[in-house]
Computed example of a mutant assay.
Amino acid sequence: MKVIRAETAGFCMGVELALKKLDLLLEERSGKGPIYILGPIIHNPQVLAEYAAKGVITAKSPEDIPAGASVVIRAHGVPKDIEERLRRRDVTIVDATCPKVKKAQVLIARSTAEGRKLLLYGEESHPEVKGLLSYAAAGAHVFDDRAALFGMLAKDEKYCLASQTTQDLVTFEALAGELGELPEVDLVVLNTICDATKLRQDEATSVADEVALMVVVGGFNSGNTRRLVQVVASRMIPCLHVETVEALPLEEISRFDCVGLTAGASTPKKMIDEVEACLKRL
């Protein structure tokens, strides 16, 4: 079986930075008290299980973290009020928010401070989106499709349009273009989609055009991984989303002679390597 692997499959810069900060803290704080993460540091259950085995505790709120502990703010960031509550506690804080997410927070805060209402393209329940919304000073709407967006517009409002950093750039730009053609809409468009997301999606479509089947590796709770699956599916070829090599339906895959492989930005290299090796053995 021929396997074509996307070059940038796996960890993005933001994920690598976050995990390096956690690893360094584990090294520095060994035997000096508990280490917490405020929510999952990245969306990969296998990685989280590895850190739990090292003694890292996942907290749901600042109040779950005892005085004297060390806490890492996850790569997706947290809402402003959560961060403020955390800073009022006697804990050591390591901020591992992705720099691209930080940039989006700053742009949204700056633009909405001028009185513009935020239109945010993203998943309302996603932790990054919840954090971004907290920086909107003049109110905000979240939407995940065109109908929802155009159904929330008001004539006398000023808007800024932004996106969750892992959303599809092509779709976002198309929506921005449509809004920009409406003379009654006072709009500023913010560039908040991560370049790494666009690169991975472009590579996924490129590989998909060369193969008979695509395999996408990554957490089922990972937004950017799910969007890779959606991007591949748009090329009208079969696509399998698996978290681990054990989940591969080998009998089904063996019917194909050329398979493409990519992975979400929170998927470790070793997990992608395992899937690739398994596919090549078929």
Rank of each mutant, 00 (worst) to 15 (best):
V129M: 04
E178W: 08
A154V: 12
K100I: 15
A148Q: 13
L199W: 14
L282I: 11
H43D: 02
G10H: 02
R281W: 05
R29A: 10
G223V: 03
K269R: 15
S111A: 14
T171E: 11
T267G: 03
S163T: 10
S266G: 09
L149A: 03
P183D: 08
I65W: 01
A204S: 06
V245H: 06
M236K: 15
P238I: 04
L199Q: 09
A154P: 13
E83L: 15
E28N: 12
P66I: 02
A69G: 04
L107A: 09
V215H: 00
G139Q: 08
H126P: 02
A176W: 09
V229M: 09
I73F: 01
L199E: 15
I35A: 02
E63I: 13
S70L: 08
A174C: 10
V275Y: 00
A140W: 06
G223I: 09
V231K: 07
T165F: 01
T58V: 13
C12P: 06
V170A: 15
K270M: 14
V188H: 11
L199F: 13
L149Y: 01
R255K: 15
S125T: 14
A52C: 10
R89E: 02
S70V: 09
L17N: 07
E251D: 15
K54P: 04
D156E: 14
A53C: 10
A113D: 09
L153V: 10
T192S: 06
V211M: 03
L133V: 08
V129I: 02
T8Q: 15
E128A: 04
A162I: 01
T267W: 02
G31V: 07
S61H: 11
Q201I: 06
C278L: 09
F143I: 09
V275L: 07
E27Q: 11
D202H: 11
V216N: 06
Q46G: 05
G219T: 03
T58L: 12
V129S: 00
V217R: 01
E252R: 14
Y51V: 01
R5C: 10
T192P: 05
V245E: 08
M236A: 15
E27H: 12
E210Q: 14
S254Y: 09
V211L: 01
A176Y: 05
Q105T: 06
G77S: 08
L261M: 06
K32N: 07
F172D: 00
F11S: 04
K198I: 12
D202I: 11
K32E: 09
G68K: 05
E252I: 13
K117Q: 12
V216H: 02
P45V: 14
T205D: 14
A138M: 10
R227T: 01
A49S: 13
E16D: 13
T97P: 07
R74W: 00
H43F: 07
T205I: 14
L169K: 13
D144T: 10
S206R: 14
S61Q: 12
G218N: 06
K32D: 08
E84N: 10
G151Q: 11
A104K: 01
G218C: 09
T97H: 01
V185D: 01
T244R: 13
E173G: 03
S30H: 15
Y135P: 01
M236D: 15
A136V: 02
L119G: 00
E178L: 08
V71S: 00
S266Y: 05
T97G: 03
S134Y: 04
A208W: 05
D257F: 13
T262Q: 04
A67T: 07
G139V: 02
